[in-house]
Amino acid sequence: MIAPGFAGVETQLWIWLIAMIRPGAAFIAAPVFGANGVPLQLRLILSLGLGLAALNSVTIELPADGVASFQGFMLVAGEVLAGLALGFAVQIGYAAAFVAGETIANAMGLGFAAMVDPASGQPTQVVGQFLSVLATFMLLAMDGHLMLASFVVQSYTALPPGGPLLSNDAIWGLVEFGGALLGAGVTIALPVAFALVLVQVVMGMLARTAPSLNLFAVGMPVALMAGLVLMAISLPIMGEGITISLKAGLEKAQSIAEGR
């Protein structure tokens, strides 16, 4: 028998747990928060803090048959879907830096040089790692992590727990936005990659005019040096492209939070 003073404790704990699902799912899919170096305890504390803040704007009602029911399963599934959509929208804008780094590295001949990315734990080319670090700094500089947290809390008003799921238009819009990832990455890498293609064309012409020239001994150092110089020159333009991509991801997350 539960003491009268603790009769509502279990229900309150279930409400807090459900309120944590959406922020937790968003942090798993979002950059910075979803990095392997972020402790799990920190994510739980942040999810609980945002969940408690969201309870001020919406009332969560548990299913009549409990959480371990079909209605409870749909409630949890809706929370997970909404959180993943919010975090993944920002992740798409952030991943454009990886695509740009892969494009530049392959043009420079550094496709074989890879290192472990601390954010994802997967091997990444060094240029992509550099641009991802730059994207992380720029995301934090524009308060993107705080904006994502505000979008998560705002989404409880447009998409209350237990209410309707994300619309088909919102999901399809996220899919179309993901399709623009390749174009955004190529646009960021275009100043350097196009110039490196011209360098490769020049080296090919030299190889045809001087067959005795060792193309591998000369072409790779030239492409590497040209790539480093071109990256140093065009870094402000690339940074602007990364900023535009990050803003697009945050704007997409805001539209999902508003139920659009």
Rank of each mutant, 00 (worst) to 15 (best):
Ala257Arg: 03
Ser57Ile: 08
Phe6Arg: 11
Leu181Asn: 10
Gln122Val: 08
Ala210Asn: 15
Phe194Lys: 10
Pro236Thr: 02
Ala7Lys: 11
Ala195Cys: 08
Leu206Val: 14
Phe98Leu: 12
Val229Glu: 06
Ile233Tyr: 15
Pro221Asp: 10
Thr59Leu: 09
Pro31Ile: 01
Ala226Trp: 05
Ser132Met: 06
Gly78Gln: 12
Gln91Ser: 13
Asp117Met: 00
Ser47Trp: 05
Leu86Tyr: 09
Val76His: 01
Pro118Asn: 04
Glu61Trp: 00
Pro236Cys: 02
Val99Ala: 10
Ile256Asp: 09
Ile104Trp: 10
Ala89Asn: 06
Val133Gln: 13
Phe88Leu: 12
Leu134Ser: 14
Pro164Thr: 09
Gly163His: 09
Asp65Ile: 00
Ser245His: 10
Pro236Gly: 02
Val199His: 11
Asp169Tyr: 00
Leu13Lys: 07
Gly163Met: 08
Asn56Thr: 12
Leu110Pro: 07
Ala248Ile: 02
Phe6Lys: 09
Ile21Tyr: 04
Gly72Gln: 07
Ala107His: 12
Gln154Gly: 09
Leu213Gln: 03
Arg43Trp: 01
Gly109Pro: 12
Leu230Thr: 04
Leu110Arg: 11
Tyr156Ile: 01
Ala253Asn: 07
Met220Tyr: 12
Phe33Ala: 04
Leu139Tyr: 08
Thr187Tyr: 02
Val116Ser: 12
Pro31Glu: 05
Gly241Lys: 05
Val58Glu: 10
Val192Leu: 04
Gly173Phe: 00
Trp14Gly: 02
Ala64Leu: 12
Gly204Leu: 12
Ala195Arg: 12
Pro221Ile: 05
Glu258Ser: 12
Leu206Lys: 03
Leu159Tyr: 09
Val218Phe: 13
Val153Gln: 02
Met1Val: 13
Gly24Asn: 11
Leu48Gln: 10
Gly227Val: 06
Gly66Pro: 07
Leu13Gln: 10
Val99Thr: 15
Ile15Gly: 00
Ala82Cys: 13
Val127His: 04
Tyr156Gln: 06
Val175Gly: 11
Leu190Lys: 11
Ser212Pro: 00
Gly162Tyr: 05
Phe130Gly: 05
Phe33Ser: 05
Val201Asp: 12
His145Arg: 00
Leu148Ala: 02
Ala26Leu: 02
Thr187Cys: 00
Thr243Ala: 14
Gly204Met: 10
Val58Arg: 11
Gly144Pro: 05
Leu110Ile: 03
Asp65Trp: 00
Pro211Val: 03
